[in-house]
Computed example of a mutant assay.
Amino acid sequence: MKPETAVLDIQGQYRVYTEHYRADSAEHTIILVNGSLSTTTSFAQSVRYLYPHFNVVLFDLPYAGQSREFNDHTHLMSREEEADILLELIEQFACDHVLSFSWGGIATLQALARRPRRIVKAVINSFSPIINRPMLAYLERGAEVLAACDRENIGTLLNATIGKHLPSLFKRYNHRHVATLETYEYAQMRFHVENVLTQQGRACNSFADEIDIPLLFVNGDWDEYTSAEDARLFARHVRHCEFRVIHQAGHFLDMEHKAAWMQTRDALLAFLLPPLNSPRQPAARHHALAI
């Protein structure tokens, strides 16, 4: 299973590396949105169960992964700009589903609040609408090591906090990956972290209020940083939402062990796929507001 790869021009401003897994039998296309400091490779476990039920689209933001060499990195990107890129890719690949992980949920919720005409369902993994005490401590320490470009401690911090339930092999990969990034990637992540800290939260509730498609929130019951309890606060803002808890799993869900992978797979496919023998659903909705 090899994807089609391309580097796409986004509104004449950015170049974005993409991977497109085409499935002959799939009627729908899902786009996956990375978390901070992540690349397309972080979704390897997710692609295994989404394909071939869906065509699957992955991408690296302009400052990350295989998009880096095609962009000049002259300014720091806002979450609004990341949402713009996501909306453009949704149109180019005719995506009708979205799956985000961790901090990718911010840009995803912003994009969904604009009611893209194609999207019918979305899954938000490992995300919550508040900054609780463990997350605040993680972010404050993260801002310090990112500002110092302290490569060793950036990797150590990740594995000691949100990554602490990962297998040792994944921890070694994470440490090597985040400790060898470019300085502008650290600056970009620090920019996002400080925006969150100064806003005293992620300011996502106003975006959630505008979303009218069904959302599924998935969290691990061992994840104290984006806890399942905190995620349920989205029920106050999202019109149509469901929640699933992955047992004995932390922040990284399907990457942590086989049972968590199976639970995550079952939760996502049960939500995303139509029930057996149900009438075929249309692939897109239409709104007065288009992107």
Results as ranks from 00 to 15, higher is better:
Leu50Ile: 08
Glu182Leu: 14
Tyr51Thr: 13
Ala160Phe: 02
Val33Cys: 00
Leu50Arg: 03
Arg285Leu: 14
Ala148Phe: 04
Gly35Thr: 04
Met262Glu: 15
Ala283Thr: 14
His287Arg: 09
Phe170Pro: 00
Asp60Ile: 07
Trp103Ala: 09
Pro274Gln: 06
Gly163Lys: 04
His97Asn: 12
Trp261Met: 10
Gly65Lys: 05
Ile213Trp: 04
Leu269Cys: 02
Leu276Gln: 15
Thr41Tyr: 09
Tyr173Glu: 14
Phe207Asp: 13
His73Phe: 05
Ala148Tyr: 02
Arg176Ser: 08
Cys95Phe: 01
Phe271Lys: 14
Val218Arg: 00
Asn132His: 10
Val7Glu: 13
Ser36Thr: 14
Gln199His: 13
Tyr184Ser: 09
Ala122Pro: 00
His237Ser: 07
Asn153Leu: 03
Glu144Val: 15
His286Asp: 11
Thr264Cys: 15
Pro167Glu: 07
Glu27Val: 09
Ala235Gly: 04
Cys241Trp: 02
Ser42Ala: 12
Arg232Lys: 09
Ala235Val: 03
Phe217Ser: 00
Val98Gln: 07
Arg115Ile: 10
Asp223Phe: 01
Leu146Ala: 10
Ile10Trp: 05
Thr180Asn: 14
Leu253Phe: 02
Asp221Pro: 12
Glu224Cys: 12
Arg239Tyr: 06
Glu69Phe: 12
Leu87Gly: 11
Leu146Lys: 08
Ile154Gly: 02
Pro214Met: 11
Ala284Phe: 09
Val16Asn: 01
Ala137His: 13
Gly12Glu: 06
Phe43Ile: 06
Ser46Met: 11
Glu140Tyr: 09
Ser67Gly: 06
Phe191Gln: 09
Lys2Arg: 07
Ile131Thr: 08
Val123Cys: 14
Thr18Tyr: 01
Met255Phe: 01
Gly104Trp: 03
Phe101Asn: 02
